[in-house]
Nucleic acid binder design. Structure first.
Lengths: 196, 196
DNA sequence: TCCTCCGATATAGGATCATGCATCACTCAA
DNA sequence: TTGAGTGATGCATGATCCTATATCGGAGGA
């Protein structure tokens, strides 16, 4: 329950996963228990304000109060910068990450059948794997993969897969298409992508 | 305790007071009890995340997650918009005057210890700072601040501080209560000042 | 004066947070 | 297979949140 905080909690989870930080590692940094964090992230309990602040701090985030009128502006600011920030500890080397993601896609295709979107995901992953990605780009890929893992079994998976496919392809195009390209970044630190 | 959340809580209190909303009115909007809000604001208890979100929502604020790196930028954004485009006297000498006065009060509290009157002065200054004052009102504030500066070190300071506190609070009440109907609040929150 | 509103405080009881274990099923690498 | 890592789950205990209700002193306004 507690629909109000769902979005904030989901954001911390996305950042944590995108940074390659495990619940146990986070629990040590934040001074909480892994069990506690698991229950919070899975919506089984509602954290106290200070617990939640501990979590955000441990993720190098800050909880800020913003007048409603300025929310879109702040959102734009955050989105534009796409936080190439968390080097904390890349849990896995990149190609392992890609390998795992490709296995996941393969499994999904077996379980739920092939789809154009899954094909696109597979295709772009294969491409991106062979390219040198900068921090920002890698960050984006990490987040997209994390989302894919999280929602793989959801009955809402279809539109999410579609969105992931689009983001991956956009990244691929911007790379293949000549160096600069804008930090197109459909980023995660804002709009909730979930859920029901 | 809970130093991390103190700042956020203090902010909600400032916004609430600046909007002329009582704890009781806020409690109705947020769906909490007045006693609860009092204890939170005075630091006697730590709210749950959802309770705190209820409070912020009721104050037309949004709780946002921002990468630490972007905090200064967001702060600048918020601060820039904090005062509406209302016809403020150019150059903001008023703001500086308030800032100076608040520093003075803080210093006095350090030197001579806290007192109810100093607290009142501090509170009312914080309120008045965010409000558009007409010439007459600003004149009164100027005089009061000048008196405070003049008598800060006097051994007769106590009754003078008391008198200043009373005058400031009277002014605040007349404004918050809509007495003189004029430009008004920087933070506009609909005036549902009712309560039980 | 009487009345209203303010914020702070007290009490009691029920709900839930949070910890500290332990354990589970799962995935991956050696 | 074995060992390590992941997140989810269970459970007992203690802490504290949160409500509901009532009261208090202080500050106006009628």
């Amino acid at each position: 329950m507690a629909y109000q905080s769902e979005r904030l909690i989901a954001q911390t989870r996305e950042v944590r996963e995108a940074s390659g930080v495990s619940q146990r590692a986070l629990s040590k940094r934040a001074g909480l228990t892994q069990s506690h964090i698991s229950q919070i992230e899975s919506g089984k309990m509602e954290p106290g304000l200070s617990s939640f602040i501990d979590i955000t701090r441990a993720l190098d985030l800050e909880l800020m109060l913003v007048p409603k009128k300025l929310v879109p502006a702040v959102l734009g600011l955050v989105k534009a910068q796409a936080t190439p920030n968390m080097h904390i500890h890349a849990g896995q080397p990149n190609d392992k990450r890609f390998a795992r993601a490709e296995r996941l896609v393969k499994k999904m295709k077996e379980l739920y059948g092939s789809s154009a979107d899954l094909d696109r995901v597979e295709d772009t992953l294969r491409f991106l794997r062979r390219v040198n990605l900068n921090d920002q780009e890698m960050q984006l890929v990490r987040e997209l993969i994390a989302r894919l893992e999280r929602y793989q079994a959801s009955d809402q998976a279809a539109p999410i897969v579609r969105d992931i496919a689009q983001n991956l392809q956009r990244l691929r195009n911007s790379i293949a298409h000549g160096g600069s390209a804008e930090p197109r970044a459909a980023y995660s630190l804002d709009e909730g992508d979930d859920d029901a």
